[in-house]
Nucleic acid binder design. Structure first.
Lengths: 126, 126
DNA sequence: TCAACTGTACTACGTATCATAGTACACTAC
DNA sequence: GTAGTGTACTATGATACGTAGTACAGTTGA
């Protein structure tokens, strides 16, 4: 289900956060759907449960999931609150990667197509 | 000239790479223009020369600058070779931040405007 | 020639982060 | 109660980051 790069410079828990976040954004995981338990996912991915929990905690802090002690962790029913600081930071990163991609030769048409694809996968995700 | 966030989670040398890369991309720094020496920039920014050198080495590896022993470091005269692997990686990051920005409520029109701004600052950079 | 500047390459050290391992506790469902 | 959840600790080893110091090679200009 999830592919991780254990040799990457990027921490495992951050990779997890990114992947799960993506699954939620493109609505592969629906609101209130239960995520695998900390322990089962740890076993499946052959990594430590603490690492999974760190990822889940981060996702909860960002509003993408919620956890209930004794029950499990679930996808948040609604869009996370528009965290303004978070959005500002994301915009900065976005601008950075836009500049670099265009500098490396990615045509703006391709980027706009990418935006449209994302728009479609978010809105009518069937 | 350059503003760094020493308390950031992001390594200083990476911040340096990003900032200088941006100056080159938007052509504030012209081809063959000399960069401050490792030692002078270290003094100016009050950080260790080794950190500057690490940033310069990374910029050289990516093709943005070149260094000549005894003379100094200079902006590369031409666009770095279209590093395909690099571009693929940048595209992935770009897609990630595009998704997240739109998920957090950034309208696609705003993103397209951002693209145009970047396009302008690259082409006719006066 | 020589001094002063440049880039470059090391070693060593302290610190922080990451990931693991292990243990423990609280809560829920059956 | 038992088995499953989330959660919170401590401890340990590995790695990356930044600093400090030293050294060497090449360029420049007096």
């Amino acid at each position: 289900m999830l592919e991780l790069d254990l040799r990457s410079r990027k921490p495992i828990y951050e990779q997890l956060v990114d992947k799960i976040k993506e699954l939620i954004i493109i609505e592969v995981m629906k609101p209130d759907e239960q995520l695998p338990s900390v322990r089962s996912m740890a076993q499946e991915l052959a990594i430590n449960p603490n690492t999974i929990q760190k990822a889940y905690r981060e996702l909860e802090n960002q509003g993408y999931i919620y956890s209930v002690k004794g029950k499990g962790s679930f996808v948040s029913p609604a869009t996370p609150q528009p965290d303004i600081e978070k959005l500002i930071q994301v915009k900065k990163e976005l601008a950075k990667y836009l500049s670099e991609a265009m500098f490396l030769g990615m045509p703006s048409e391709e980027i706009i197509n990418l935006i449209k694809e994302i728009e479609d996968s978010m809105g009518g995700g069937s």
